[in-house]
């Protein structure tokens, strides 16, 4: 396969991954790494590097729109970025000395977990009483627009949420994915933020988290221009298109199908790493 054919195929794959990733809310990164390794036979380290830069692109593109719409909690995002940035550097440093087989197994576990998370119902939590003194101290409460005007909300369990964000940062740095699923988990389930605030603030923090591990990856030669180019130029428009379609789309069936694909990819990754593939 020559570079032109390879680039076009990777671009198409990335476009699809970005589109589906945005529709299901899991992000393109978690799909693109297994796609590049199992389907295109790319070394997992190149795949991680390429995924990471495309994650920065989609995160920044999406965050730009969400900030303007008033969903993003900037203070919350910046505060949690402390956890995710430190986590990402730790993850990226670990990734440079563990074996690619270990990376593949960790990715498989994350894929299975993401598939599970995407099946969970997502109720909108609204809590008006502040339970955590940190919230008032750090000015973490906010408001977000709904059909009935602006609705105020509070955050709870900030230290635990901070801890989970650190783990999300480690996973992001380790695997070159945005790990949006874990970030949403921290904000939505633990800190009890409204779901829309969680997802939008999550995408706001993903760019900085990914940039933190990108420095380490760049220095180690993981970010290859020839591979990153079609991945980034595919995932970005795919994700933006997916975000446009998302409103009013029937995503339930899609979620089930997508989870199934994730589970299959997870098993293939483990199988490949055990049989000495890659």
């Amino acid at each position: 396969m020559n570079i032109l054919e390879f680039t076009l195929l990777v671009w198409l794959g990335s476009l699809t991954a970005g589109f589906i990733g945005a529709l299901t809310g899991l992000g393109g990164g978690v799909v693109i790494v297994p796609l590049l390794t199992s389907v295109f036979g790319v070394d997992i380290r190149y795949a991680i590097g390429a995924s990471l830069v495309s994650v920065i692109a989609t995160s920044c593109g999406a965050a730009s729109t969400y900030i303007k719409k008033g969903f993003t909690n900037l203070r919350m995002g910046m505060f949690l970025e402390v956890a995710t940035t430190i986590g990402a550097i730790v993850g990226a440093l670990i990734a440079t000395f563990v074996s690619t087989k270990a990376l593949a197994v960790v990715l498989a576990i994350v894929l299975l977990y993401s598939a599970y998370l995407s099946q969970q119902p997502k109720p909108e939590n609204i809590e008006s009483e502040s339970t955590d003194p940190l919230v008032t101290h750090l000015k973490l409460s906010g408001t977000y627009p709904t059909a009935n005007g602006l609705v105020p909300y509070q955050a709870s369990s900030v230290p635990l949420g901070f801890g989970v964000m650190w783990i999300a940062g480690v996973i992001s740095g380790l695997l070159g994915i945005g790990s949006g699923a874990f970030k949403v988990l921290a904000m939505d389930q633990i800190m009890r933020l409204p779901f829309k605030v969680s997802t939008t603030t999550s995408s706001f923090t993903i760019g900085v988290t990914a940039a933190a591990s990108a420095g380490v990856y760049l220095a180690r030669g993981y970010i290859d221009p020839g591979l990153s180019m079609p991945v980034m130029l595919g995932i970005l428009p795919g994700a933006l298109l997916g975000a446009q379609v998302l409103v009013g789309a029937q995503t339930k069936v899609l979620r089930v199908v997508f989870s199934f694909v994730l589970v299959m990819m997870a098993f293939k990754m483990v199988y490949n790493s055990l049989t000495g593939g890659f």
Partner: peptide, 21 residues
């Protein structure tokens, strides 16, 4: 310029050092 050269990302060599800084 390079479209018709063979693609090879199968084995990790790391990008050339000029692309790392």
């Amino acid at each position: 310029r390079h479209g018709f050269e063979p693609a090879d990302y199968h084995i990790f060599r790391g990008t050339p050092s000029e692309f790392r800084s």
